[in-house]
Amino acid sequence: MPRDIVRKKITKNAYRITSKRAETCLRVRVPGGHLDACLLDVVRSIAERFGDGTVHLTTRQGFEIPGIPWERMAEVNKAVRPLLEALEVPLGVTFVDLDGGYPGAGTRNISACIGNRVCPFANYDTTALAGRIEAAVFPHDFHVKIAVTGCPNDCIKAHMQDFGIIGQAMVEQDASRCIGCEACAKNCLKRVTGAISMKNNRAVRDPRRCIGCGECVLVCPTGAWSRDPRKYFRMVILGRTGKKNPRMAATFLEWADEEVVLTVLRNCYAFIDAHIDRSLPKEHLGYIVDRAGWPAFREAVLQGVSLDPPLRVAETLEFSGYFYERDRVFR
C-alpha cells in the first residue's frame, strides 16, 4: 500500500477510512434511488475488479464497494465514469474531470421513496425532484442529509434527515360532484387527521387540519376531490440519529413550492460556513443550529424566499427526541 495517503483528500473523493488499513471503500451515489438496471453491471464490475467482490446497499440508497486497495483508486475513478455520465451529468451536475471520480461526498446522496412512478399514494415524482436537488447541492463538502418522500407516510424516513421534503397535495373539491357518501370523511378520520366533516350531506375540509396527503382524492368515488396540479411540499428539518440527541425532524415549511425548497437548501451552506465548529472533524447541521440559534438559521435559509401564501413558516420547531442523560433515567 502507498506510504502516504492524504486522508482529507480521499474523503472528498468519496473513499473512506475502513477497519482494514490496506483497503478503502467507495461510496456510489444514486440520486433519487432509481437507476437503469444496466448500471448495476458497472457497480458489479468495479466490485469484482477492484474490491472484494461484495457490495453494501446503504440506507441512503447508494452502494458502498469495500475491499479496494488504496493504490487502485485512480483506476477505480476511471471505472466510475459511466456512473457519473448516467446518474449525474444528465441532472446538470458538472465535473472538472470525469475521470477523477466523485468530486465530493460531504452532502450525502439525495434519497427518495419510490414516488409516483409506482406508488399510488405519492404526490409527485420523487426521483425527479431528488435529481433537481442533486444538481443544486452537489458536490459540497458540508455534511448535509436530504431525502424526499411522496406523501406523509414518509417511507424514506424524511423525519431522520437534516432536510426532509414531503409531498403535499393541495386538494380541491368540486362540490357539485359530492354525493355525500362519506368515504373521504371516514377515511381521513381513521387514517389521517380527521380534516373532513360532513355538512348538509357534503364533505367539508378543514384546511388547518389537512396535511395534504391526498387520500381523499384516492377514495372519492365521483372524482369530487382532485389535486391542484401545482406541486407543494412540507419541509421538516434537523432530524437526526446520532450519539448526542437523536430526534425526529420538525416541520419548518408547509405548502412550499419547489423553488422555495431549492432556495432553502442552497442557503443552508452559507449558514453552515458561518457557524460550524471547525475544531471538530465534522459537525452535523442540527448541532450547529442548536448552538447558533434557530432565529439565525431561519433568517439565513429564508434569504430570498418570498413568503407569499400558501407558504407557511413555523414560528417554533417542535422536536421529539431525547438526550442521553443516563443518570436521570437509570438510577
Partner: peptide
C-alpha cells in the same frame, strides 16, 4: 382530459 386531475398524482382525469 383534465390534466393532473386523475386519481393518482400526475395522471389525468378523462370525463
Amino acid at each position: 382530459r383534465l390534466e393532473g386531475r386523475g386519481r393518482f398524482s400526475d395522471t389525468d382525469m378523462v370525463r
